[in-house]
Simulated scan of single mutants.
Amino acid sequence: MAITKYICHRKPERSFHIHGHQFPVCARCTGFYTGLLVYLIYTLIYKHGYDLNMLIISIILMIPVAIDGFTQYFGLRESTNNLRFITGFIGGIGLIIFLKIIIRWILYVL
Rank of each mutant, 00 (worst) to 15 (best):
I93S: 10
F98K: 06
H17L: 00
T30F: 09
N82F: 08
G20F: 04
I56R: 00
T4H: 07
A27C: 07
Y33C: 03
Y108M: 14
I93M: 13
T34P: 02
F70H: 03
M54I: 13
D68F: 08
H9R: 14
G35N: 04
L83Y: 04
K100Y: 05
I106C: 12
L99V: 06
H17G: 01
G75F: 05
I56S: 00
Y46Q: 02
I18L: 15
Y39P: 02
Y6R: 13
I106T: 14
T87M: 06
I97L: 14
G91H: 07
L76E: 05
V25Q: 04
W105H: 05
F70V: 13
I93T: 06
I60H: 02
N53S: 11
I45A: 08
D68S: 06
I41K: 06
I103H: 09
T71F: 14
V38I: 15
L55W: 11
G75H: 06
T4A: 07
Y33Q: 03
C8A: 09
H48T: 12
S15Q: 13
I3W: 15
T30N: 09
T4Y: 15
I59S: 11
L99K: 00
T71H: 12
I45F: 10
I93P: 04
C26E: 05
Y42I: 07
I18S: 13
G69R: 05
H21R: 11
G31W: 03
L37S: 12
R84D: 04
L99Q: 03
L61A: 09
G69N: 02
H21F: 10
I57G: 00
D51F: 03
L107V: 08
L76W: 12
P24W: 07
P12V: 04
I67F: 05
P64D: 07
F16I: 01
Y73A: 04
L55F: 15
I86P: 00
T4L: 01
R10H: 13
F23W: 14
A66R: 09
M62K: 09
G31P: 01
T71C: 15
N53C: 01
Y50K: 09
F23M: 14
F16W: 06
S79T: 14
A66C: 12
I103A: 13
H19T: 01
R28S: 05
D51A: 00
R14F: 13
L52N: 09
K5I: 00
I41E: 02
N53L: 11
K5S: 10
I90V: 12
F23S: 14
H48W: 02
N82G: 12
M1R: 08
R84H: 06
C29V: 02
F85M: 04
T43K: 13
Y6H: 15
C26A: 07
C29I: 08
F98V: 03
T4F: 15
G20A: 09
I63V: 15
G92P: 02
E78A: 06
I106A: 15
P12Y: 04
T43Q: 14
I93A: 09
S15C: 11
P12G: 11
V65E: 02
E13T: 04
T43D: 07
W105V: 09
G92E: 03
I90L: 11
I45M: 10
Y46A: 01
P12A: 14
D68H: 08
L110P: 00
Y33W: 06
M54V: 10
L61W: 03
F74H: 07
Q72M: 05
P12S: 14
S58G: 03
